[in-house]
Design a protein around this nucleic acid. Sequence first.
RNA 1: GCGUCGGUGGCAGAGCGGUCAAAUGCAUCGCGCUGUAGACGCGACGGACUUUGUCCUACGGGGGUUCGAAUCCCUCCCGGCGCA
Length: 379
Amino acid sequence: MFSFKILKRSKLSRARLGVISTPHGEIETPAFIPVATRATVRTLESREVRDAGSRMLICNTYHLHMMPGEQIVQKAGGIHGFMQWDAPLMTDSGGFQVFSLGFGSDHGMGKILKEEPERTIVQGTQPSSVKITDDGVHFRSPVDGSPLFLGPKESVRIQEKLGADIIFAFDECPSPLADEAYMRTSLERTHRWETTCLNVRKRSDQAMYGIVQGGTFPHLRIESANIIGALPFEGFGVGGEFGYDKRSLRRMLGIVNDVLPESKPRHVLGVGHPEDFSYIAEGGGDTFDCIAPTHYARRGVVFTSTGRLEIKKRRYLTDQKPLDHACACDVCKTYSRSYICHLMRAHELTGMKLTSYHNIHFFNARAALIRHRIANDEL
RNA sequence: GCGUCGGUGGCAGAGCGGUCAAAUGCAUCGCGCUGUAGACGCGACGGACUUUGUCCUACGGGGGUUCGAAUCCCUCCCGGCGCA
């Protein structure tokens, strides 16, 4: 049911052109995957996401377990039926929440930094609202404080009920502030968890991706890729941070992907600003997800062919041009910057919807361009 | 006309003798967001400068009281409400 076909390998880089086939259809790669954490790409209906050019989404185990709960989703026919998305779907395992609700929250930072960090998280350190044990992670909801224990068994059990086409093994996304000793301990624990995920899986109609970690330590990345790559996963995720320098993203991916079996698809977790696309493809990434298009859209940041546009600025109130003159999306064909600027300033939901739609379309178009360039031997 | 309440920064709205260039919210400006807790977070927001400080101009206008007033008094102007 699940397969990955490589249509072309670049001669210039590790980039490849491919097709992932799932029980819910195919997707051409490299591809950008919008994030639909709680079974929605925020502000957009499933059909709109589809219209904007998306062929696969990634939902989240932790968030869908907390609300509405996997039983509800399962009864609705899995996420596909629940959200009426008749195309491929992935679910993230909850491994990112180990970071985002843990050290990420403690230090008020994301997993990608702009400069070399001071590695203050040493082996044995625990985040304040999350407790990491050998069996899994005790979470405490930042919303209402409700507890949740998620380990490899729990994550797989939930993901099998949610029913995505591709599920991820449970990992710990480590903080960029972790020192090497912490990173090694975390990595070894993650490796054990991933083996458990393979052992407890019951469904054969879902692909399971193992996740490579190791932070910015090349030898740990290689070690992780060797171990995870040798396990019978249908594909691989590459998680964590890749260094503050954009170039190191391509380098680290390259290091990992030289080790991972070439015939299986690789998903780069949580990376994908427009300027990252070519690095990801050149590093051998096939799919990648990022909250950027929707996250920024709601804050009034629009991605265009000439860079970011902060559409809430007063100066756009009288601008009759489309968001992006080079964009073919319905929003750009229909509405002016002036209108969208007004909606955003008035806090009208439609404003966020229009910017989200455009950004998703823009990201998809950029991914299509990457595919085009590989096909034309340009990348 | 009489009575009464009120006029504070772009807006709304605290303050009601010193610790007030004036709380708070919104707006504005700047910055930050990369497997989404977050339609969010941080900073600035009268002017000028030698900017953890100094000076100037400010709480409807004018005039007083006081060492000191956005805060008290008088008067004028404007607005809400009530009564004629």
